[in-house]
Design a protein around this nucleic acid. Structure first.
Lengths: 200, 200
DNA sequence: ACCGGACAAATAAGCGTTTTTGTTCGAATG
DNA sequence: CATTCGAACAAAAACGCTTATTTGTCCGGT
């Protein structure tokens, strides 16, 4: 009895499985250092079988990144749809995002140095940034509707908050100096943001 | 007629000159790629003469970084002591800092990859961060005195603003994707910050 | 204050050999 | 028809080794 994929066929299930395992290996060793043999062994298939599912090593890597972004987007979607206080929602959003970032240090390194398809990466980043602004805006709008926030320019506020979040990401992606207390940092930046948008 | 250094003697003047030229070369080629010969030629001295002024290549590099930090601190000090509106002062502070960062991409790379004296770098960063918080706090205090800001926890506000600024630095230091409109970004983040601290 | 010369250590360059690795393809399996 | 893989292969990378060059550092002399 094998797992069945989204569409119920074995192919998709296998594809998902490869993706899952490749993700682990890529995130551990980066793009250059992991070999297709590594992945093939891990999924208990022949190396050439991988080509039944993906066109190339880089193609596989891109698929992994793609899925990573999808998963993150999905998790954030859940956070956003929870019925919580707007401020808590903002905090949860930031924490969820940062938690994901913690696991992606090697991906970042790979993206910066190993990958040739720069266009693809730019595309993903851009898409994600737009998603982020959209999601933040939704939180803000809800906050206003619940009479907790007071915002005149949603676009501006969303972009500002996005930038502030970037400031939190930095110590996680670029060689971190000493362990960062995530919760504490988030609380501080959140306070500043809230100063700005809370009704009083 | 040669320039004379701070203390009027030739030694200090030469040291300063070496520092100035070494800075240019280091910032262009990074730490590993620049050789002492490069620098010696540029300052029109023999390679061994450099050892009259510095103990080692890394020592020279550290001195360059140190000076860089000093210059930045000095420039920021000037900005802070100007008699301007607090919000403008905050904007000038951020812009001045980011402008300096633009020129330091190679330094950053060197610091991340080439340098063995990690302790030294950590020290510099820490010192700078503390300075930054102190300077931001001074701006905030002045803003409150001028009755433009309304702040309950200066420490918290200063740390928050520092984090937000980091979000602006990121696209400058970590491989920038497309050119960033600095002034615009600063205005946006400034707006968010000001939302939070302005009296209304 | 400056430099030539010396030196070890590190780095690069050369080069034939071997191994690894990404990719293709046709055959096998069921 | 869907899936798997062995075998083959060129390109790349790793290796081992020798030789040449560069580079950071030190010292003695001026």
């Amino acid at each position: 009895m094998h797992d069945l994929g989204k569409n119920g066929n074995k192919r998709d299930a296998n594809r998902e499985n490869i993706l899952k395992i490749a993700r682990e290996i890529f995130s551990k060793y980066g793009f250059k250092k992991t070999t297709l043999d590594d992945i093939a062994n891990a999924v208990r298939k022949g190396k050439s079988s991988l080509y039944y599912y993906f066109n190339s090593k880089e193609d596989l890597f891109q698929a992994v990144i793609m899925k990573e972004v999808e998963i993150l987007a999905h998790e954030l979607e859940i956070v956003i749809n929870r019925n919580t206080d707007p401020v808590d929602k903002l905090r949860d959003y930031i924490l969820t995002k940062l938690a994901t970032f913690r696991n992606l240090a090697n991906f970042y390194h790979a993206i910066e140095n190993d990958i040739t398809a720069v266009g693809f990466i730019d595309e993903v980043k851009l898409k994600y940034e737009q998603d982020e602004i959209r999601m933040i805006k939704r939180i803000l709008i809800e906050g206003v509707r619940k009479n907790e926030f007071e915002i005149y320019d949603f676009n501006l506020a969303a972009i500002g908050i996005t930038t502030a979040i970037k400031g939190l990401e930095m110590p996680l992606t670029a060689g971190h100096y000493g362990d960062v207390n995530l919760e504490r940092s988030v609380d501080i930046i959140l306070k500043i943001i809230c100063y700005g948008i809370m009704k009083r």
